[in-house]
């Protein structure tokens, strides 16, 4: 993934409306963060994946696809190779870290809907924390920039 570094920004916050079509804003925003803060390519992939799965989940289930709501995403650098995304919404309480996962066979056989996105999110989020807020949810996800060298097995 090659980041588009031609457009720089200091705005480390993204506000996404409750519309799945607006998730196209996420990729260019992550690319701008990557340029500004030297985020490695593998970490960008993980960030994009987690954001797509979590944001689409909030829009579909938290907001029931109703327009007029929003989700706030904030980026910050903890230290070199340690990056943080904080996602806040105003949906009913939902903790994606403790939600039971469907057996993988049932998900793949199409017997039951859902679960795949949350499973992927948990696989790619390095270290996540959920907080139930007054009138909403906050999910903080830390990503470590280190990654296995080519040829090394990945978890």
């Amino acid at each position: 993934m090659t980041a588009n570094c031609a457009v720089q920004t200091s705005k480390d916050q993204l506000i996404v409306p409750s519309d799945l079509d607006k998730l196209t804003q996420v990729l260019p925003w992550v690319e701008r963060m990557a340029c500004a803060h030297a985020i490695p390519a593998h970490t960008q992939f993980a960030m994009n994946l987690c954001l797509e799965e979590i944001l689409s989940n909030i829009i579909r289930y938290g907001y029931s696809n109703e327009p007029g709501h929003s989700i706030t995403v904030r980026y910050s650098t903890i230290s070199k190779d340690d990056f943080l995304l904080v996602i806040e919404d105003h949906a009913p309480p939902f903790n994606p870290l403790t939600e039971p996962l469907l057996p993988i066979e049932e998900t793949l056989e199409g017997k039951r809907e859902g679960g795949l996105g949350i499973r992927l999110f948990r696989s790619f989020a390095g270290n996540a924390k959920y907080e139930s807020m007054p009138g909403g949810n906050r999910l903080s996800i830390r990503f470590l920039g280190t990654y296995p060298a080519p040829g090394e097995p990945i978890a």
């Binding site: 994946l49 993988i104 066979e105 793949l108 992927l120």
Partner: peptide, 16 residues
């Protein structure tokens, strides 16, 4: 690529 392969393995799609 390595990231896409991880998605395939973590989701169990490589069993299909």
């Amino acid at each position: 690529n390595q990231d896409v392969e991880k998605v395939l393995k973590m989701s169990g799609v490589n069993t299909l």
